[in-house]
Design a protein around this nucleic acid. Structure first.
Length: 492
RNA sequence: CGGGGCGUAGCGCAGCCCGGUAGCGCGCCACGUUCGGGACGUGGAGGUCGUAGGUUCGAAUCCUGUCGCCCCGACCA
């Protein structure tokens, strides 16, 4: 009927696009490259925010908010960072419109309202934040500063895709300042671990932790760490990054502190972020041809209850049972939706809630009332069983845990099956073309080789995995010696 | 920025080549029958055909301009 989506094998790309729209997650806005995140999609993002925010607080961070606008001179202070983002910045040049004398009823930019200094719409906030930190920091006693902000940023991308890459997106960016290099590095790694834990425990999405090559590093960072995930079409997706900024921003913004010894030193920094891109990752990690598959820990609705009834009387009898059951589940902390619409038939509701990825569906009809039973269907495996009404309270929590675990295991098994070790360039290209996924191969460590491989194969070095064992080998491209394998893939 | 495609009812599309009363499916509204996997019947509402101009007796259709969006590539989280 009206809500079918293409299958993944037919056309992965339109499967994704249609799923995002049909599942009511988001839609294109009238503004190029921007999207409207719809209530159902936004509630998943809110779940992500809640979980992450707690993890940030638990590791000692606090939230703050910095401005959207960054004066151009401030933005350009850290040169590498500025250069890196320059070509995708939106710029505010004027502050007023006026009616257009040549076009009644229309407005025009008032040429008399030109800003003395242009304002850059933040593509990231290091500049405004470090210029602020300069005022906040005098002594080692002011350190560390552990601040996070939830915000929107704008990057004028040439090509956009819902959630994966939009001109404006939502994210969080942590910005910390420390007295020592070690402390900053530890923070960088700690937050990488927070992201990895979030991805695996909440999103049920296995990730590989690693370090970016020089070519893929965040502009202005000394070192960039990342988590990389594998999507069902064999393409990699960077799901989060954590940067050790060294003293680069402290140097650029002249942020110094008095040490215990009474000397002046520049502050050490980190920054780290994840964005609404995670929504794309979540969708592409688990969903199937029938629609979304959401991990219970991020699902806006855990259990949907569909009554099967022919008339008011039946519905009211069912409602009595459902109310009891729903209360028990809600008291246990689960979100329960009783879909008692009489305008849609059960089959329609089944399909709709499957499309929306609700982990568990209960169906209860006259037959169940007689038998004291309920039909329980799980979204991940699409299996159904009939259970006693009295068992629901204990069975559902277990079932939800099981679903959470099962989709993680499934994604993990898939990810493992999509890691291929190769030792020659021919093999490398063959795997990318015929199988895709991650490819573990030796690399000589030079940007030239990395660039050449990227140019020829479209694959990039996703990361140098943190757990990569020392292993002598030869670079697949140059034949030069290499001490460990790095992770290549074509990526989103 | 290069290549391709599309703007016609809320959504998806046909009509355009060959100008002549604007159509189909879904959705929507009403009523009835239905209701354990996307119901059916009957009746009904809904469109400045993206936009500006031109050709013509007459333009969704032909011509010119323009705006926007989507997809593929280069760039990127």
């Amino acid at each position: 009927m009206g809500k079918e989506i293409p299958t993944r094998s037919e056309d992965y790309s339109s499967w994704y696009n249609e799923l995002v729209k049909k599942a009511d997650l988001a839609e294109h806005s009238d503004v190029r490259g921007c999207m409207v995140i719809k209530p159902y999609g936004y509630s998943i993002w809110e779940k992500m925010q809640q979980a992450l925010d707690k993890m940030f607080k638990d590791t000692g961070h606090v939230n703050a908010y910095f401005p959207l606008f960054v004066p151009k001179s401030m933005f350009e202070a850290e040169e590498k960072n500025a250069e890196g983002f320059a070509k995708e910045c939106a710029i505010v040049t004027h502050y007023r419109l006026k009616s257009d004398p040549k076009n009644p009823g229309k407005l025009m930019v008032d040429p008399d309202a030109k800003l003395e200094e242009e304002l850059v719409v933040r593509p990231t906030s290091e500049a405004i934040i470090w210029s602020t930190y300069k005022k906040w920091i005098q002594s080692y006693r002011d350190l560390p500063i552990l601040v996070n902000q939830w915000a929107n940023v704008v990057r004028w991308e040439m090509r956009t895709r819902l959630f994966l890459r939009t001109a404006e997106f939502l994210w969080q960016e942590g910005h910390t300042a420390h007295a020592t290099s070690k402390e900053a590095v530890d923070e960088t790694v700690q937050m990488l671990n927070v992201y990895a834990e979030f991805a695996e425990r909440f999103m049920a999405m296995p990730v590989i932790k690693g370090r970016k090559s020089e070519g893929e590093r965040f502009p202005g960072a000394v070192d960039t760490y990342c988590i990389e995930a594998m999507m069902q079409d064999g393409k990699a997706l960077q799901a989060g990054t954590s940067h050790f900024l060294g003293q680069n921003f402290a140097n650029a913004f002249d942020v110094k502190f008095a040490t215990k010894e009474g000397k002046l030193d520049h502050v050490w920094g980190t920054s780290w972020g994840v964005s609404t891109r995670l929504m794309g990752a979540l969708i592409m990690a688990h969903s199937d041809d029938d629609g979304l598959v959401l991990p219970p820990k991020l699902a806006p609705i855990h259990v949907v209850i569909v009554p099967i009834f022919r008339n008011e009387e039946e519905l009211s009898k069912i409602t009595v049972e459902v109310d009891k059951m729903a209360k028990t589940l809600r008291d246990a902390g689960y979100t329960v939706k009783f879909d008692n619409r009489d305008t849609q038939k059960p089959g329609f509701k089944f399909a709709e809630w499957e499309l929306k990825g609700v982990p568990v569906r209960l169906a209860i009809g006259p037959r169940d009332l007689e038998n004291g039973t309920v039909e329980v269907a799980r979204r991940d495996t699409k299996t159904k069983e009939v259970m006693k009404l009295t068992d629901v309270a204990t069975a559902i929590p277990k079932l939800l845990d099981d679903i959470q675990e099962n989709i993680y295991k499934k994604a993990h098994a898939f990810r493992e099956s999509m890691i291929t070790r190769v030792d020659t360039y021919d093999e490398f290209k063959k795997v990318l073309d015929e199988k895709a996924g991650f490819v573990l191969a030796h690399w000589d460590g030079t940007p030239e080789t990395e660039a050449a491989i990227k140019e020829e194969s479209k694959a990039t070095i996703r990361c140098i995995p943190l757990d990569a064992p020392e292993e002598a080998g030869k670079c697949i491209y140059s034949g030069k010696p290499s001490s460990r394998r790095v992770l290549f893939a074509r990526a989103y």
